[in-house]
Design a protein around this nucleic acid. Structure first.
Length: 839
RNA sequence: GCGAAAGUGGCGGAAUUGGCAGACGCGCUGGACUUAGGAUCCAGUGGCCCAAAGCCGUGCGGGUUCGAGUCCCGCCUUUCGCACCA
């Protein structure tokens, strides 16, 4: 019978489901392994690019099971969010129905890929039984002072009609829709992640098994800086202005001061300025600009006409306003040291301000913090910068004009969203009592189902009187319900804890079971979550730790970021570089021509995406080659952390490989061979392969793992073609099926049964290699003399050092080369080659 | 601009970490089987050379070493991250 994946794959998918092989009793004994793929947003259909992520996780899960671990591999849905609501507006379907439909399609797709999840632990963040605990968590944060309502300039996306977290603004634009974000002064809910900045930064040092890249990105985002706050007296104000600097050693070079236009002392400073109106107009203009626009405008400033006193030189230095000084960082005021800071240098040159050298080293502006030596700075002259900084901080503290200070770039997490499809923030506003949390026994605050989605005039919740009107639980009076919902990153900041006891209706999770199963042993997901999700999850885990609910501070022991799959798409240079669907393209002499207007199109490699018309839908692929082929190809194509280009031709290589494995299985099952060559060679290859594959599985080197399995299959094929003994071939083949199982689960189960093995491969024990049987019986040894002469001899097993040299010395050809020369050194590389070094 | 990673056949990529460069696969060439082949199977495939012998080959230029894709120094290129954070 030919290899027919469409006949065997559904059969085994049913068998696994019926046997509930993936269901885990979380109280069962054994060494646990918690495998987790980041839960997806249910956006609809999955393509082969998404598949890589889940296939990777499934292969690893199956491997760890076979290694004897009690492995948990749950899946759920990050089901709140904007696209569902946009679909509701556009297509008049309720976000809940839209989301449910997508979940159904995605689950079916996971099944077709042969991915084993413990569906008894499925959860969806839009389920009231889930978001109830989201609300509970919010109230705990509120009670601990970690959730607060504050007025602040926030990022507002005019297209999505909601505020965004800083993390969701990329290059000044909305991460989701690309619209330029504007600043608005609004009252919103924040989570106090800044309280944990130091611990979140320090904790990165312990994450040995996280990619350095992710750790660096988090470190940059947290932006820890050590320096000092220093007060500069301002006689005309009658009080000092406080600045923050990381370079107190350069304070003698501070020749002016710059304040952010929003700085609270600005009004008083310019009150009697002769051109006050013009300055205020300039300030208003800058305040209206986003950070992006300010940067594009270049450095601009205005002199206030007032002076501050440099506390170390006692000189009066001018106070300027500058568009490049940010109110949100530090104190909103800086001492400008144009000799040793590029921004200050540019500003000074632009406005003709003094530039003074206080660090000897290189050309101005000289900013090196390591190599420089202080000059023109009486207290610290001759000290290297590092020592000078420490000395100056001591002096600043001694004089009582400031203190050592650690500051962070990280800001509090803005979680209010003016949208419907999210977890309602469980808060009430009472005229008498103020802000009151919803009592825990009244949770969840459920989203009303029948609301109108118009897409205009903001959040539909705010217009629903039945939702808004509430009773104050403290005084019984009239109260108004909060109508903002939570950022969906709150939902995903703790879901991995809920998977252990997803149906518990009495508490958020079971502490002792969570302490048993967490941290997650292997977390897999895209690099796009390097900052947002992973930082929030680390933050929330620490809060839960401080509440005594979990024993650990880091939720994910190992993190792996798979690379994305790309494919060529075509763009029309004559139509604003629009992406063109393949159906509208004609290939002529290797060029892609757009049928509609004859434009020669530009091919471009891009991430698979509907908008670029380069997705490969798995259905057709599976219909033709089967899911096992897609799985093997996807993992073989490139190292999993790398970006990989999808190639339709490449797929057949995987298919042929499985076809060969299939035929070998049939041949072995028929048992036609007998007598002939012995099987030492194929057994040795088997042990070598087990060793290599086992070593590589845990390092995610799946591409080379599969190539080793192909080699083993080739060796078995040669053995059979040579009329070799059946028994060793069967032994090697059995090991091949086991090792191939994580990659091609269906075909291996079928062949396993065909060969008469009992049970499932999935439940079999991963084979182990015998080092004694791995060694080659004959090794080829290359003899090099001074790197010039060269010869090959064969040395019989075992190739230990002494024997090798005996064989080399006894070799006639080598003796000729060595004649009359003095041997200086012999270098022996086990199993490989020998160098004889002569004078 | 700053920081990190990476440059190996026509292509994706190997090389047990200083020891036979190009495993494995795609593609290509030839053959087999076929009414047919964009299916399948077999063989070949880094370059120079009809072939053999031989020589040359891991971005470029130096260096260390008996020996360098791998280590060191200096360039070039690409990708990613950060980018007024004082």
């Amino acid at each position: 019978m030919p290899y027919d994946p469409s006949a065997i794959e559904p059969k085994w998918q049913r068998a696994w489901a019926e046997a509930r092989v993936a269901e885990v009793d979380v109280t069962a004994p054994g060494q646990k392994f918690y495998m987790l793929n980041m839960f997806p947003y249910p956006s609809g259909d999955l393509h082969v690019g998404h598949g890589r992520n889940y296939i990777l996780g499934d292969a690893l899960y199956r491997y760890f099971r076979m290694r004897g671990r009690v492995a948990l591999n749950p899946m759920g849905w990050d089901a709140f969010g904007l696209p569902a609501e946009n679909a509701a507006i556009k297509r008049r379907i309720h976000p809940r129905e839209w989301t449910r439909g997508n979940i159904g399609r995605m689950k079916a797709q996971f099944d077709r890929w042969g991915i084993l999840y413990d569906w008894s632990k499925e959860l969806a963040s839009c389920d009231p039984e889930y978001y109830r605990w989201n609300q509970w968590l919010f109230i705990q944060l509120y009670k601990r002072g970690l959730a607060y309502r504050g007025k602040a300039p926030v990022n507002w996306c005019p297209t999505d009609q909601t505020v965004l977290a800083n993390e969701q603004v990329v290059d000044g634009r909305c991460e989701r829709c690309g619209t330029v974000v504007v600043q608005r002064e609004l009252e919103q809910w924040f989570l106090k992640i800044t309280d944990y900045a130091d611990r979140l930064d320090a904790g990165l040092d312990n994450l040995e098994h996280w990619p350095d890249k992710v750790k660096t990105m988090q470190r940059n985002w947290i932006g820890r800086s050590v320096g000092a706050d220093v007060e500069f007296q301002v006689p005309s104000l009658g009080k000092p202005i406080r600045i923050f600097t990381t370079r107190p050693d350069t304070i003698y070079g501070a020749t002016f001061m710059v304040l952010a236009p929003e700085h609270p002392d600005v009004a008083a400073l310019v009150a009697d300025h002769p051109e006050r109106a013009a300055i205020e107009q300039w300030i208003a203009g800058v305040r209206n600009q986003s950070n992006l626009e300010r940067q594009e405008a270049g450095k601009e400033g205005r002199f206030t006409g007032k002076y501050a006193v440099n506390p170390f030189t006692n000189e009066e230095i001018p106070i300027w306003l500058g568009n490049f000084v940010l109110m949100q960082y530090g104190t909103g005021a800086i001492m400008a040291v144009p000799g040793h800071d590029e921004r200050d240098f540019d500003f000074a040159n632009q406005y003709g301000l003094d530039v003074r050298r206080v660090v000897e080293g290189g050309e101005l502006p000289y900013v090196d913090k390591e190599a420089g030596v202080a000059v023109n700075s009486p207290l610290i002259d001759g000290l290297t910068s590092a020592k000078a900084i420490a000395r100056m901080i001591d002096e600043i503290e001694r004089r009582g004009i400031g203190k050592k200070m650690v500051r962070y770039r990280l800001r509090d997490w803005l979680i209010s969203r003016q949208r419907y499809w999210g977890t309602p923030i469980p808060m009430l506003y009472c005229g008498a009592c103020g802000i009151v949390p919803v009592p825990e026994d009244q949770l969840p605050v459920e989203l009303p189902v029948d609301v109108a989605f118009t897409g205009r005039e903001g959040n539909p919740l705010a217009k629903d009187d039945r939702f808004v009107n509430a009773t104050c639980p403290q005084c019984g009076g009239q109260a108004r319900r909060e109508t903002d919902t939570m950022d969906t990153f709150v939902d995903s900041s703790w879901y991995f804890l809920r998977f252990v006891t997803p149906r518990d209706s009495t508490k958020i999770f079971d502490t002792s079971l969570v302490n048993r199963w967490l941290p997650v042993d292997q977390y897999i997901g895209g690099i796009e979550h390097a900052i947002l999700h992973l930082l929030y999850a680390r933050f929330v885990t620490r809060v839960l730790h401080d509440m005594g609910l979990v024993a650990f501070e880091e939720p994910f022991a190992r993190l792996f970021n798979q690379g994305m799959i790309t494919k060529v798409g075509y763009r029309d240079p004559n139509a604003n570089m629009m992406w063109i669907p393949f159906a509208d393209i004609e290939m002529r002499d290797g060029d892609a021509i757009r049928k509609e207007n004859g434009s020669k199109l530009i091919p471009e490699l891009a991430k698979m995406s509907k908008s670029q018309f380069n997705v490969v839908p798995p259905d057709e692929l599976i219909a033709r080659y089967g899911a096992d082929t897609e799985r093997v190809y996807t993992l073989f194509i490139a190292p999993p952390e790398k970006e990989a280009e999808w190639s339709d031709e490449g797929v057949v290589g995987a298919y042929r490989f499985l076809g060969r494995v299939w035929r070998q299985g049939e041949e072995l099952a028929a048992g036609r061979m007998s007598g002939g060559a012995n099987g030492e060679r194929v057994i040795r290859k088997m042990h070598q392969t087990i060793d290599a594959v086992t070593r590589r599985m845990e390092r995610f080197e799946f591409n080379t793992t599969i190539s080793f399995l192909m080699e083993l299959s080739n060796a078995i094929g040669e053995h059979l073609a040579g009329g070799g003994d059946l028994a060793p071939a069967r032994e090697a083949y059995t090991a091949l099926l086991q090792m191939l199982h994580p990659f091609a689960p269906h075909i291996t189960e079928e062949l396993w049964a065909m060969l008469g093995h009992s049970g499932m491969v999935l439940k079999s024990r991963w084979p182990s290699a015998d080092p004694a049987l791995m060694q080659e019986d004959v090794v080829t040894i290359v003899v090099q003399v001074n790197g010039k002469l060269r010869g090959q001899i064969e040395v019989a097993n075992p190739p230990e050092e002494k024997r090798v040299f005996e064989a080399v010395d006894a070799n006639e050809k080598v003796q000729q080369w060595l004649a009359g020369r003095q041997i200086v050194k012999r270098i022996y590389v086990p199993g490989k080659l020998v160098n004889v070094v002569v004078k």
